[in-house]
Amino acid sequence: ETTIRVGSWLPPAHTMNADVLPTWGKWIEEATEGRVKLKIEYPGGDPKALLDQVQDGAYEAAWTFHGYYPGRFKLTKMVELPGIEGGAKGASIAHWRIHEKYLAKANEHEGVVLAGLFTHGPGQIHLAKPIEKLADMKGKKIRIGGGVQADIGKAMGVEGVAAPGSKVYEILAQGVADGAFMPMGEKKTLRLKEVAPFSIKFPNGMYLGSFMIILNQEFMDKLEAKDREAIMKVSGEKLSALAGEKWGSEAEAGEKDALAAGNTIKEATPEILAEFADMTKDFDKNFLDSVKDSGVDAEAALKEMREISKAEGSK
């Protein structure tokens, strides 16, 4: 009997630890007839350390955020671009399929076995005080994570505040930041509803956030072929879809919870959408320029990704 120890983070009650990883574990156990099990371990500390640690075998598996490694993961930014319809589930399925068809050959995940790709729920604006139009964002201090949200922040002219996700509540409570870019789920999980009671909701979000689920190469090589295949069968698109679906529901639950707490969630007006479209009009082009040398037909991939995501998300 073998155990996959998954290095994880975020609180144990978060859907990733309460639903996604346990379900994946159940699938693996069933598929391998009980020969391989899964156990969640919380090492604490910086989640960006997990990629190295899975590569070197300190954990058999882990999940982490592509945006923690600026400069390395350029192609995975594709799924974060504005204008991807279909929510977390659709985007996660599209993320995986496009990776298999186009992006895998650039080998950005070199050194580890990729088990799944997913995105969090649509990224929205959360503020301590309401605004009327996007132009009012200029000069505000906004906590921004890595990836495409950083580009959006620059385009809006906000002052980016860097802080790990776990500190967002604190810096908002202290007025160090006026707001944050985050999915709706964090209204609940990070208690943003208390410190940023005003949100602007874009129908597809302003951006998405790209995550990976990875396995150690040597661990997989050492497994019997049938177990290896069994694990991969319950990973890949199946796992990506599961993760996307759960993160999507987390976003919906967060929204409901925030509304119940008396938060104001304002749907983006046509004016706001037009402002946003204008701010981000060069994003596709800039992205395609940044991955010119990757040897991947990124333009076709992006087009196809949008189609798949929209189709899968509406199912």
Binding site: Y69, P70, G71, R72, E110, G111, G146, A162
Partner: peptide
Amino acid sequence: ARASSHGEVTEYLH
């Protein structure tokens, strides 16, 4: 060396 080979940089100052 691994981080260098992947071209990792910091977010703001590169």
